[in-house]
Write a protein that binds this DNA or RNA. Sequence first.
DNA 1: ATCACGCATTGACAAACGTCGATGTCCTGG
DNA 2: CCAGGACATCGACGTTTGTCAATGCGTGAT
Lengths: 125, 125
Amino acid sequence: MSTGRTPDPDTGIACCAPLVREPLSAADAESLARVVKAIADPTRLRLLSLVAAHDGAEACVCDLTEPIGLSQPTISHHLKILVDAGLLSRDKRGVWAYYALVPGALDSLAAVLSSGSPQPVAIGS
Amino acid sequence: MSTGRTPDPDTGIACCAPLVREPLSAADAESLARVVKAIADPTRLRLLSLVAAHDGAEACVCDLTEPIGLSQPTISHHLKILVDAGLLSRDKRGVWAYYALVPGALDSLAAVLSSGSPQPVAIGS
DNA sequence: ATCACGCATTGACAAACGTCGATGTCCTGG
DNA sequence: CCAGGACATCGACGTTTGTCAATGCGTGAT
């Protein structure tokens, strides 16, 4: 141990400033990272944007597959990740599955990031 | 082709609503994802929080290694990713390397997310 | 009942990621 | 000049991730 921080007893010079507030705990960081990971992919960002761009912030899979240019199973895979993260909601009506933005989900995530010291976020499950 | 969207000529019923605004382009999604990926890791979130928790929003590596509990090369690796993403700045003074939050970087990232249709972000390089 | 269609699930595989130990580089003090 | 400390870089390893083809499951129409 004693890896670094050598406060010279004479000068009292250490390398660092003291803590002025509580940092993020390991558990909080893990749950926050789980939500951030959901949007850390270009395909999923485009999916969110595409859903938001549709009237009513709602779209079905058939309207997302073509503009993205990936296979249908891949689109379903990404949509599932976004739903599990609490960012999208799934509503199956008849043959079609409609995905919609969860109101406030992205906003509360953004609020956590912009605040200097992130609080735990309760978006995903 | 013709994967989905079968607007019945009689009923006119299709599955989806029309677009009401421009979605994110593939290139913009890729550059935005590069920044988001930088914070999509619990260790890096804790590092950002730790730096922010220090007086002056500045800290050296020796003060970050111990609370995180990972090896020094791993911490340096994560710090490099955060610097490359434009979220941290590195300032070597003497023997020590001080990392500080780039003012406004996290905020503009948060602004992109909360806005319904994300604009391209010019944070990383 | 049967068929076609929209979507989800599975299994497989290459690429990217996180972590470590070992080593290199630069600065400071003696 | 030499020794030691702070930090970066390198090489390696196991794990996770993104993608696809193939298949399964409901639903609605014939």
